[in-house]
């Protein structure tokens, strides 16, 4: 009896995981059915292109031939990319662009969210105004900023010269040293409202009672922020930063429209470079290899994003 019972117990111990998963799937069969169409579409429009891009990255695609005339070259495209000085320049530009844009967008957005979280006259109007850069088309914004920055008759230059602060208009986007920071400013201007909205939503979740209790206990404004508000915003901050970073890694419109990656490749970031390689120079194989590398990097970011979201869910579940 004892032996039998023991076997039965061992069997039960092995089974729960599998049968539990299956039972769980069965119980949520309707949910799976609901997401099935979306998954099917994703397989067609995402999975296949990813597969094809990976495949293409192992082929040489001379610009003078059709794509079907490609030849297999193994990892040569990857070797060529990693040994190319342009790759490292573009990668450096991409890192500066992504880190600079993400950091300053987040800090500005967070600051704006904290300011707008307080109650004051005109708060609603100000909030609406601050959202405008995020709402308007990136293409329109790029053209507007191109004229604002224009090295010969841009508004900023005219104002500075008019006020006697400069002898001639500053050169923002026709100079290899200033072009990337100038584009980052435009990107921050466009993105910080997103961070602001996210952080404002996060601020709504900070319990008022805790803040009041802290105040009663004698905590000053900074201490209340640092010990009560900020810990509550940690997860939303992580998600916001990751979303901004992913969006910035994938940026295209602003640099492409404003400078086309120039002058002298000084504002080329990965996506604009990939676009030029593929559609301007028809190096589909090399462009695909670049895309695979970018994909891998984004997967790493995606992993952290999912982990952050899972952390949020666990905390909410625990609460």
């Amino acid at each position: 009896m004892t032996i039998v019972t023991g076997k039965a117990e061992t069997g039960r111990r092995l089974q729960p995981g599998r049968s539990g998963v299956l039972r769980n799937v069965w119980q949520h069969r309707a949910d799976y059915a609901y997401v099935l169409p979306a998954i099917a579409v994703m397989l067609v429009v995402i999975a296949y292109p990813i597969y094809y891009t990976i495949e293409l990255s192992f082929f040489k695609t001379p610009p003078g031939l059709q794509l079907r005339d490609k030849t297999f070259i193994g990892f040569d495209n990857y070797t060529a990319i990693l040994t190319s000085p342009v790759f490292w320049k573009v990668t450096w530009n991409t890192l500066i662009w992504t880190i600079g844009s993400t950091f300053f967008s987040f800090v500005l957005g967070f600051g704006a969210a904290l300011a707008l979280h307080r109650d004051f006259v005109g708060r609603g109007v100000l909030r609406a105004i601050l959202i405008i850069p995020w709402v308007i088309s990136a293409v329109a914004a790029s053209y507007i900023w191109k004229w604002i920055y224009h090295s010969d008759f841009g508004i900023i230059g005219a104002v500075l010269v008019g006020l006697g602060l400069a002898d001639q208009p500053p050169n923002f986007i026709d100079n290899v040293s200033t072009v990337l920071p100038s584009l980052i400013v435009v990107n921050i201007w466009r993105e910080f409202p997103f961070a602001m909205i996210m952080m404002m939503a996060g601020l709504q979740t900070v319990p008022e009672q805790l803040l009041r209790a802290a105040e009663v206990d004698g905590a000053n404004a900074w201490q209340r922020f640092w010990h009560v508000t900020f810990p509550h915003l940690r997860n939303v901050s992580t998600v916001t930063i990751l979303l901004l970073a992913v969006a910035n890694f994938n940026s295209f419109i602003i640099p492409w429209i404003m400078t086309g990656g120039g002058p002298s490749n000084a504002s080329h970031i990965w996506i604009t470079h990939i676009y030029e390689l593929a559609f301007g120079r028809q190096r589909w194989g090399v462009a695909s290899a670049y895309s695979v590398l970018l994909f891998l990097m984004l997967m790493v970011l995606g992993y952290f994003y999912v982990r952050a979201l899972a952390g949020n869910e666990r905390k909410e579940g625990g609460a």
Binding site: P63, G64, V176, P263, S264, G280, R281, Q282
Partner: peptide, 23 residues
């Protein structure tokens, strides 16, 4: 030549930009 678009739209302007920016 089939390569003309790349030469004229990318390589020649790149040459100009490399020289004019001091790169």
């Amino acid at each position: 030549l089939p390569q003309s678009p790349e030469i004229m739209n990318i390589i020649v302007p790149d040459m100009l930009q490399n020289a004019l920016t001091g790169a």
